[in-house]
Computed example of a mutant assay.
Amino acid sequence: MNVLIFDGDCSFCNFFVRLTVRLNDNPDLRITDFNTDWAKENYRPDNDVDSVIYMANGQTYIYSDAALHLMADANRWLKPFILLKLIPRFLRDTVYKLIAKYRKNIPVKNVCEYPTQKFLDMYLK
């Protein structure tokens, strides 16, 4: 089972997760937020890390690696995203951290839409 852990209080993060759910064709992919019992039991947070967390194949990914591996695992048509790892990590992570720093100020449309059945099926409580 592969799991994406995200900030459930962040509208930009919720937008990213809804997009991931729509694109997902991986039956092993699950999602949860940092406040769920599953996340509290299975992930020990590092308070210095402001990132989605992607746990897959015994690895834990953060920052840009988390986003790239998630996209590559979610849908076979998105596998080329992994090629972005050719860009040095410090550059990718700098861009990621800049977005993360201001993510709560990024306006996102349809923040309060009702969760789809696919979302509910993927969500770990």
Rank of each mutant, 00 (worst) to 15 (best):
R76M: 04
Y61R: 12
D121C: 08
C10Y: 05
P80W: 00
V21A: 01
F12P: 03
N75W: 03
Y63D: 10
I53H: 04
V111I: 12
V108F: 09
A66T: 14
F12E: 11
A100M: 10
L124H: 04
G8E: 01
N35C: 02
Y61L: 13
E113K: 15
L78T: 00
K79M: 02
R103V: 13
K85N: 11
N75R: 05
C112H: 14
N75M: 03
A100W: 05
D46I: 11
I99W: 03
Y43K: 00
C10L: 05
E41F: 07
L124G: 04
N24V: 06
E41Y: 06
F15S: 13
A56L: 06
N14S: 14
F15M: 14
T116S: 15
L70D: 01
N26Y: 05
V49T: 14
K109V: 14
S11E: 03
N57C: 01
F81Y: 08
V17W: 06
Y54M: 02
A56W: 04
Y54G: 06
I87E: 10
K40H: 11
Q59S: 14
Y61V: 15
N47E: 15
P27H: 09
D48M: 03
N75D: 03
V49W: 07
A67Y: 02
K125C: 04
D25K: 15
P45Q: 04
D73P: 01
I99Q: 05
V3R: 00
D7I: 06
V3P: 00
I87L: 14
A67I: 04
K118G: 06
D37H: 04
Y96S: 03
A100C: 11
D93M: 10
L68T: 00
L19Q: 13
K125S: 12
T60N: 08
K118M: 05
L19H: 12
F16Q: 13
D37K: 09
N26D: 15
P107I: 04
L78W: 00
I31T: 04
A67H: 01
F15Q: 12
D93S: 11
R30V: 03
L23T: 00
I87N: 09
L78E: 00
I99S: 05
R92V: 01
Y63Q: 10
K101E: 02
A66C: 13
A72R: 02
K85G: 06
L4F: 09
N42R: 05
P45K: 02
